[in-house]
């Protein structure tokens, strides 16, 4: 997938994770990589940039197990940014699906209807 495009989507996911609750860095990465094939080296720079842009603040929480953990907390600006981004994502992806679904919703269905008109090479 195009790197720029992927970054935009991951940014939306990072924001979305932090809308729900304050999280420490590794947790954000874990939550996202459970569903998407992205790793730390994509997520961390985004987390850092969004913090620099004032969308998150950070605070430290002592941990029983070791060093204190840095938690990220969404700011009001971050929330606004999330709502905007999510809105444009919904619009975009909605449009994409309207186009894709013109031919049918499932691959088999599309094959049945249009398979014959594809030129064999």
């Amino acid at each position: 997938m195009n790197a720029q495009f992927k970054r935009g989507i991951v940014e939306l996911c990072v924001l979305s994770e932090l809308v729900i609750e304050d999280l420490y860095g590794y947790k954000v990465i874990n939550n996202i990589s459970e569903h998407l094939d992205v790793n730390e080296n994509t997520i961390y720079p985004i987390l850092r940039r969004l913090t620099k842009e004032g969308y998150f603040t950070t605070y430290l929480v002592e941990s029983d197990l070791g060093a204190p953990r840095k938690y990220y907390k969404m700011t009001e600006n971050g929330f606004k940014h999330f709502l905007e981004l999510r809105d444009s994502w919904d619009q975009f992806i909605g449009g994409v699906y309207e186009i894709l679904n013109k031919g049918g919703k499932k691959n088999e269905q599309i094959f049945k209807r249009f398979g014959k008109r594809i030129e064999k090479t």
Binding site: K27, G66, R69
Partner: peptide, 12 residues
Amino acid sequence: DHKEMIEAAKQE
């Protein structure tokens, strides 16, 4: 940050 995140991963 990375040291902390790696440590967290190890703990899991």
